[in-house]
Amino acid sequence: AMAVVSLLALAQLVVGIVRLSGGARPDQGMTIFIAYLIGAFLAVPAAGFLSLTERTRWGSVTVAAGAVVLAVLEVRLYDIWGN
């Protein structure tokens, strides 16, 4: 499941960069939009890596926290774009 979410985040990163290179601009600034795109792409692999290093029950909590972080980043991306 984490691999699928990571692929979707990669697709979102590519689409975002293509739209930016095509002339579309976010309402709240391009730099912050790109930072959030990269953060959304890296959130799941970072949570997965941290989960693998923590082999106790806290590893699952780390994955759940990564999912919450990704959800917040997605909402902010939507807000930054201006929709």
Rank of each mutant, 00 (worst) to 15 (best):
F41E: 00
I32P: 06
D79N: 11
G39C: 13
G59Q: 07
R76H: 09
F33D: 04
T53W: 00
L37S: 05
I80A: 05
T56G: 07
A46L: 14
P45Q: 02
V69S: 00
V14E: 02
I32R: 11
T31L: 14
V68P: 05
V72G: 06
F41Q: 00
F49A: 15
M30F: 08
D79S: 10
A71Q: 04
V75Y: 13
G23D: 02
R55V: 12
G29T: 05
T56I: 00
L20N: 07
I38A: 11
S60D: 12
A47Y: 12
G48S: 02
Q28L: 14
F41I: 00
E74I: 13
G66W: 03
V69F: 00
S60V: 14
R76L: 12
V75E: 03
A67Q: 10
E54V: 11
I34F: 07
V15Y: 10
L77V: 08
G23K: 00
I34W: 02
A11L: 14
E54L: 09
V69G: 00
S51P: 03
R57Q: 03
L10Q: 04
L70N: 13
A71C: 08
V15Q: 05
G16P: 07
Q12R: 12
L37C: 05
V68C: 09
R19S: 00
S51F: 01
A47E: 10
A46H: 02
I34D: 03
P26V: 11
I17L: 15
V63T: 12
P26C: 12
A11Y: 06
I34L: 10
A24K: 13
P26D: 13
G29Y: 04
T53H: 00
T62A: 08
A46Y: 02
A71W: 01
V18D: 06
